[in-house]
């Protein structure tokens, strides 16, 4: 089937498990993130030009591509750092306002993040975000709800956002049985 005429039905391919590493430069306070395929998360501090990077946290994560099962087209998502569910914490935030509009229709808002610093990494285009949204909505079958994925640019202040980031970090379950 020709790509341009295909109503894509995608599956996740090229799944690689690794770590999303978050670093901070103690010279300029800039935050940087990247994906590591190493079997253990890197801990070393290092110099890079004027930057002096120190690891802040590492979260188990994965990266993937989406492949259309009909036409075979592959969309790469190696610049997607993760997804966050908007839970509504700031009514002056564009993401929260969209959540307020969509939640009554059982449409849940998720935010797609690229790697930091945003100005130094290629970010997800609107087209890629639409493909990602379409993929996750195609996976949904059991209830009459949908998801809406938006760019991180819609979040007013990431640092003070209470959204639920999907990552395998702070997941300790040490509570004793009831």
């Amino acid at each position: 089937m020709q790509e341009e005429k295909c109503a894509h039905t995608c599956e996740m391919v090229n799944v690689d498990y690794g770590f999303v590493i978050t670093e901070k430069c103690y010279n300029c306070d800039k935050i940087s993130t990247y994906f590591s395929l190493e079997s253990r998360p890197p801990l070393e501090e290092y110099r890079e030009g004027d930057h002096f990077w120190n690891v802040m946290e590492s979260a188990q994560s994965f990266r993937f591509d989406l492949k259309c099962t009909k036409c075979g087209k592959v969309e790469k998502f190696d610049n997607l750092m993760g997804l966050m569910m908007c839970t509504g914490c700031d009514n002056t935030c564009e993401a929260d306002n969209l959540r307020i509009i969509l939640e009554p229709d059982r449409t849940w808002v998720y935010v797609a993040f690229g790697f930091l610093p945003t100005e130094e990494h290629t970010q997800l285009t609107e087209e890629k975000i639409a493909i990602l949204e379409n993929y996750f909505n195609q996976r949904r079958k059991s209830s009459s709800s949908r998801i809406k994925i938006i760019s991180h640019e819609s979040v007013k202040n990431i640092a003070t956002c209470y959204g639920e980031v999907i990552k395998d970090l702070h997941m300790l379950s040490l509570t004793p049985p009831e």
């Binding site: 997804l83 966050m84 569910m85 849940w108 998720y110 996750f136 996976r139 949904r140 079958k141 059991s142 209830s143 709800s145 998801i147 639920e164 980031v165 999907i166 990552k167 702070h170 997941m171 379950s173 509570t175």
Partner: peptide
């Protein structure tokens, strides 16, 4: 066995029953 609030965002994304 996970109980963190994160499980809600993951479950909701893929629509588990």
């Amino acid at each position: 066995v996970q109980t963190h609030t994160n499980i809600v965002s993951a479950a909701n994304l893929v629509d588990v029953s």
